[in-house]
Design a protein around this nucleic acid. Structure first.
Length: 500
RNA sequence: GCGCCGUUAGCUCAAUUGGCAGAGCAGGGGCCUUUUAAGCCCAAGGUUCAGGGUUCGAGUCCCUGACGGCGCACCA
């Protein structure tokens, strides 16, 4: 694109070169970041001169005749520059005014002083272009009103922001903050699990047999082997093989890929945390979950209460714990334990005037009731526990109720954030469960599970009893950054390609 | 996949019933040596998402498509 704005900047680029200046020098000699410079000035004695070399992106220029005020922005804030003709000479000031634009990266050297309005400012003795921008950043201006930053002409079109996240980050500081928070969340999760003696591991992304979740995989192809491969849909089956190998506490934080619909809480590529804990059951994992989320909230937000979409959420333990059966009965009046077959349950649902999918097992019907009539009501952190066996093929059955498994899910703000269970470690029963899955799913059913023989072989060597846990890190980040869309917490969310 | 809404200058947005496409900021020219959305003056800036159609005349109405937002559906 060479519109008039770009052409103007290209002319300025030429001008710099004609002056013998490199518009893209390889190095800077920065001595202070913006906040380090301000701190150094505040700490200095009254008569002491503080000389700094600062570097950053030009974010504002206010020309006032023979002086110029400007702000640069760097990693930790903004710093004002003050350029005077009597200090720099007319040629240098002209060069600045004629060849430097908003968005350029520059370096400036000079002594710090405080302006009449109290702002710590660099009295610029010399300056240097570090990187000339030839496209203008999306215009956005900030005004300070009563210490609140009011943004004018904000770059806030979601499509443009996601497609050009670099520009979004460059002009929207709150977006940078979301991703700093995201990094701190992941860091806190690691700290928490490491402190409990968990070992962080990495397992294959490319798999010949996918499993561990009910999801449609992405298919790719290995050229040399002439075979299709799948991108993983979960880490579960590999992490549990590690328990067989004697690693008692393992976790992985990484990407899962699911070839499914995209919406406010789903992206085809998302970040998952899974951990497996030998000699723990789902009750222990519930305790760990509460404790872990509390730790993360305290580390990241400094407390356990936060605002999410206008509501105050408090993750202080203990979280609500309700049996799934009771929660569904409470919201729908249907006690699924009284309806032991698909047909009986379907009749009860229809009597209650509730719509249900036409093709669904009893477990799927229960899940439908859960998703549509219970989950939206679960605003404060809540665990629902004891799930139907037929939708939980990797979870251990309740010895007192073979149709139920020791499984729970955690919900916050009407959103599922985690899923966990006492893991099934009986190889004979696991094989049986896999075969049941094969029976209840047709050849072309996306949920049909390929039978992972090697996983069964691993389990036959002996797997310790254990509790497993999976959580969407993106959704946790949504909660802790008060974002309503998963796209706001993923740097480069998936969008359709568009010609332009 | 379905429904509703949207797409106008670099950015944020206007445009009456179908009647000459505008503003602020950014950019260009000028004035201004402690300003901070600096201010003032001047000039410029458009494939109105794309393609068809209706009409004397379409940003506006109709059709098709692209992309996006929201909702629904899908999501062991």
């Amino acid at each position: 694109m060479t519109d008039r704005l770009t052409q103007a900047r290209l002319r300025k680029l030429d001008r710099l070169r004609k002056e013998g200046l490199d518009p893209y020098p390889a190095r800077s000699s920065r001595s202070h970041t913006s906040s380090a410079a301000i701190e150094a000035f505040e700490a200095a004695a009254k008569d002491e001169q503080v000389r700094v070399v600062v570097a950053g992106r030009l974010r504002s220029i206010r020309e006032m005749g023979k002086t110029v005020f400007a702000h640069i922005e760097d990693t930790d804030g903004r710093l004002q520059l003050y350029l005077r003709q009597d200090q720099l000479g007319p040629d240098q000031l002209d060069l600045f005014l004629e060849a430097f634009d908003l968005g350029d990266f520059i370096q400036a050297e000079g002594e710090l002083f405080r302006t009449r309005t109290g702002e710590v400012t660099v009295r610029v003795a010399s300056f240097l272009m570090l990187s000339k921008a030839i496209y203008p950043l999306p215009a956005a201006k900030e005004e300070l009103v009563d210490d609140e930053i009011v943004v004018h002409s904000a770059f806030d079109n979601p499509e443009a922001r996601y497609r050009q996240r670099y520009a979004d980050l460059a002009v929207n500081p709150e977006v940078r903050e979301v991703f700093r928070t995201r990094a701190r969340i992941i860091d806190a999760l690691r700290q928490y699990l490491n402190n409990l003696g968990f070992l962080e591991v990495e397992t294959p992304v490319l798999q010949f047999i996918y499993g561990g979740a009910a999801a449609e995989p992405f298919v790719t192809h290995h050229k040399q082997l002439h075979r299709d491969l799948y991108l993983r849909i979960s880490f579960e089956l590999y992490l549990k093989r590690l328990l067989v190998g004697g690693l008692e506490r393992v976790y992985e934080i990484g990407k899962d890929f699911r070839n499914e619909g995209v919406d406010r809480t789903h992206q085809p590529e998302f970040t998952q945390l899974e951990f497996y804990m030998a000699y723990a059951d789902y009750q222990v994992v519930m305790d760990v979950t509460e404790d872990m989320i509390t730790y993360v909230a305290e580390q990241v937000l400094g407390g356990t209460q936060f605002e999410y979409q206008g509501r105050t959420i408090d993750v202080t333990p203990p979280w609500g714990r309700i049996e799934l059966r009771a929660a569904i009965a409470e919201q729908t009046g249907i006690d699924y334990a009284e309806h032991n077959t698909e047909n009986a349950l379907r009749t009860a649902i229809s009597k209650a005037g509730i719509e249900a999918p036409e093709v669904a097992s009893r477990g799927k019907l229960i899940e439908h009731l859960l998703d549509h009539h219970v989950v939206p009501e679960l605003i404060q952190p809540t665990f629902l526990y004891n799930y139907p066996r037929d939708i939980s093929p990797l979870a251990k059955a309740d010895v007192n109720n073979p149709e139920s498994v020791e499984r729970f899910e955690g919900f916050v703000a009407g959103m599922e954030i985690c899923n966990a269970f006492t893991e099934l470690n009986d190889p004979v029963e696991q094989e049986q469960r896999f075969l049941e899955m094969g029976r209840t799913h047709g050849e072309d059913d996306a949920d049909r599970h390929p039978l992972d023989e090697d996983y069964l072989r691993a389990m036959r060597y002996g797997m310790p009893p254990n509790g497993g846990f999976g959580m969407g890190v993106d959704r946790l980040t949504m909660l802790l950054t008060d974002r309503s869309s998963i796209r706001e917490v993923i740097l480069f969310p998936h969008l359709r390609t568009k010609e332009n």
